[in-house]
Design a protein around this nucleic acid. Sequence first.
DNA 1: CGACGGCTTGAGAATACTCAATATCGGTGG
DNA 2: CCACCGATATTGAGTATTCTCAAGCCGTCG
Lengths: 246, 246
Amino acid sequence: MSEANGFIERIERHLVLTREERNAVANLCGNVRTYRRGAIVRRERDRAQEIFLLSSGWVISFVLLDDGSRQILKVHLPGDLLGLSSTAFAEATESLMTVTDARLLAIDKAGLRDLFVAHPRIGAMIFILAQAEQASLNDRLASLGRTSGKSRVAALLLDTMTRLRITQRSTDKSISFPLTQEEIGDATGLTAVHVNRMIRALVEEGLLARQASRLTIVDEKRLEEVANYVNRDASIDVNWLPPAKG
Amino acid sequence: MSEANGFIERIERHLVLTREERNAVANLCGNVRTYRRGAIVRRERDRAQEIFLLSSGWVISFVLLDDGSRQILKVHLPGDLLGLSSTAFAEATESLMTVTDARLLAIDKAGLRDLFVAHPRIGAMIFILAQAEQASLNDRLASLGRTSGKSRVAALLLDTMTRLRITQRSTDKSISFPLTQEEIGDATGLTAVHVNRMIRALVEEGLLARQASRLTIVDEKRLEEVANYVNRDASIDVNWLPPAKG
DNA sequence: CGACGGCTTGAGAATACTCAATATCGGTGG
DNA sequence: CCACCGATATTGAGTATTCTCAAGCCGTCG
């Protein structure tokens, strides 16, 4: 079992890899790095020589504004690639922080290059995954720009929980949710106080339930409506990819 | 002169292409399509067989929400690739509409595939450009999530005008700006009424000037401060790309 | 000229924020 | 096991930003 398995599984949800391709992906990765909850993996403007593959745990990517406020760009779950947008720059454009204990694999940009050359199909697949990310970021932009506080909170919770269920192949509607209300606010563009009120409203209305730090989806259908939710992952289409090599 | 020149120039701002690579890019493109101002190029959920290269004119990409509101995701200028995020899906995830008369080149996904295989360096370069887009979308997310209405409007105007100046190799601080205040609102997550007030405030404070549909940057430094602006295009780094073939 | 789209302005309402006080939880040291 | 601490969550009250609705204006095009 390679630490890269989460990522390989993600690819193989859409595409069957050859043994050689699987090895190429597994060999990309350097050593495992383990982090405690709350650790900074990389800071904005740090030299960005590598991207990361999240093996276990949750990581947030964020930027800090001049006035000290923080915008969380994405909540990353196991199997995600982190720091991809920094491949275009010498310096990282976003900070990465763990919100639980986590294990990461570093992938040097040179490794990514070799993959593009030796296995164009995987290169194109990573391109597709990056574009699916872009689409999900588009959804988040629409959420922040055009929906109410309650809707934004619902969207964040639902999206995160749905993605987690996919990687865990679980139909469980109840999960341990490690983000603080402050962090949920920084992801949705709200204050912690208002997040608190919106979550309570969602509980009040019977869409969500809470027990300690555990969240449960009570009425998924209505939650999707409130959140304006679209599950894009299911409709990823890889038909235009080149055939496997050899 | 190929219609793809704007795009080739964009690549060559960062990288010298071989003659063969340049031809490969030029040959990607199908026929030119011309559109009138206000034309829908592609609708969300349309079959997405191709991406587009914007040869001349302005195009917006946007999504519509259930309640009828619109979020403009990006204002595209000549040289931009459009509809990239739909490469991950069979159906378009965003709509494309011209805001001026425009010329577009369609590029079939199959053409993109052939490029990834035959010219991994260009494939990786397109990947880099897509990631630079992602970084700029990150900036927009932070703008919508964490800054005031005035700041968001300033960011949109400044970013758009700056990008236009790059492609036109012009230092002109005054340009014809075809977006309506309604559209600026749909891009910044504000109402047209509030956009109007914020623009007037920016004019009032001596950062901007207007004459008919022409906009002028009066105090670029302060505008950048208000907008929280970062020009990322200048710092794109292509060092990890593979060498040119052959 | 008249119609239309876009811009401007005012007034009142709604959403979300700030500040401040209090409660609860999870972990730590004794 | 218990007491305590810091971090997080909750609640209230007043405020600010932004929205909604409505009316009037301006410029262009037929």
